[in-house]
Amino acid sequence: VANSVLFPCTYAFSGCHITLPYNEKVDHEKVCKFRPYPCPCPGTLCKWLGSLEAVVRHLTNEHDHVITLKGEYIIFLATNINLIGGFDWVMMQFCYGFHFMLVLQKQENRNGDQQFFAIVQLIGTRQEAEGFVYRLELRRHRRRLTWEATPLSIHENIATAIKNRDCLNFDTGTVQLFEENGDLSIIVSINMC
């Protein structure tokens, strides 16, 4: 009986007008663009939830360390890369009418081993993210390390992608090859595909 009745999306209150059978409702709600989004800023334990349109405004107003740079081809210069402990370097890149969050995360385990993870997340839906490809590149002294992938969407979790190593992943030895005076340059390019 439930499958013969159309149910409104749970996020109708924030503007979704879709009605669908019960067995399709859960899948739709996972990707519904009217779903409230958590703050994507890593490492801050921010509890904010809001609409997709409000995410960038929230990041700009409440996380003022997050700088935005315009352009599809930029250099993300992570400073003090050799600090001991866990750190995040976070910024936003604005191009093609979209904001992309760029994250470099350094994790340190109990043995003092350090791992670095760099990833790009679109402040947009999965469907919008699939229209882009990002490239992260380390370059120095004729060495080059490149990662290319589809950006995560706001529906996807950076922590999960890092856990799965679905990002640019390198260790301290690699940092020593590419850093300059304690700063690491990551060349970021975003293209439409």
């Binding site: 490492g43 801050t44 334990l45 360390h65 700088i67 740079l69 315009k70 352009g71 081809y73 930029i74 250099i75 993300f76 210069l77 992570a78 400073t79 003090n80 890369i81 600090l83 402990g85 866990g86 750190f87 995040d88 370097w89 976070v90 910024m91 470099l104 995360q105 350094k106 994790q107 340190e108 385990n109 109990r110 081993d113 791992q115 700063d183 340059s185 060349i187």
Partner: peptide
């Protein structure tokens, strides 16, 4: 050939939340 010179931004490190540090 024209080479594009990308803009560069210095990004300062933010301390990771303590409870997340040892999740490797």
């Amino acid at each position: 050939r024209t080479y594009r010179v990308p803009k560069e931004v210095r990004v300062e490190p933010q301390k990771f939340a303590e409870e997340l540090i040892h999740r490797l």
